[in-house]
């Protein structure tokens, strides 16, 4: 399972990096959205998968899944959501101000 997930995570990273290298701002933001999925899955995968029940003490399982990576990922999800929301609004404002979403055309400023 971990090997399969590693390959999947590699694919997510490839696609995100490919999106980062494109010219459109929207694609870059989509890339950042996807790369955060890759990171979260990587965090979960690295602690080992499916080693017992959910980390809820009431379930009285023999063993529990490692709860620490889950706490870390939870924090990471919220933070990446905040950043994505901000990026999205920034892209919206950029497009409104400059009338383009092409990164090639968004270089430098007039006084440079």
């Amino acid at each position: 399972m971990e090997v399969l997930m590693s390959v999947v995570i590699g694919i997510i990273f490839s696609v995100s990096i490919y999106l980062f290298l494109s010219k459109s701002i929207i694609r870059v933001i989509l890339g950042s959205l996807l790369i955060s999925h890759g990171v979260h899955l990587l965090l979960i995968t690295m602690s080992g998968l499916q080693r017992g029940g959910p980390p809820l003490l009431g379930l009285e399982a023999e063993a529990y899944t490692d709860p620490l990576p889950q706490a870390l990922v939870l924090t990471a999800i919220v933070i990446s959501f905040g950043v994505t929301a901000f990026l999205l609004v920034m892209a919206y404002r950029t497009f409104k101000e400059h009338k383009t979403d092409n990164l090639e055309e968004l270089r430098g400023s007039a006084d440079e």
């Binding site: 590693s6 995570i9 590699g10 997510i12 990273f13 490839s14 696609v15 990096i17 290298l21 080992g48």
Partner: peptide, 19 residues
């Protein structure tokens, strides 16, 4: 394409080795 695939392969390799 080369860069993004290389990056993905690298992540996979790192992840497998680390595990």
């Amino acid at each position: 394409l080369i860069i993004s695939v290389a990056f993905g392969v690298m992540i996979t390799l790192v992840s497998l080795s680390a595990f």
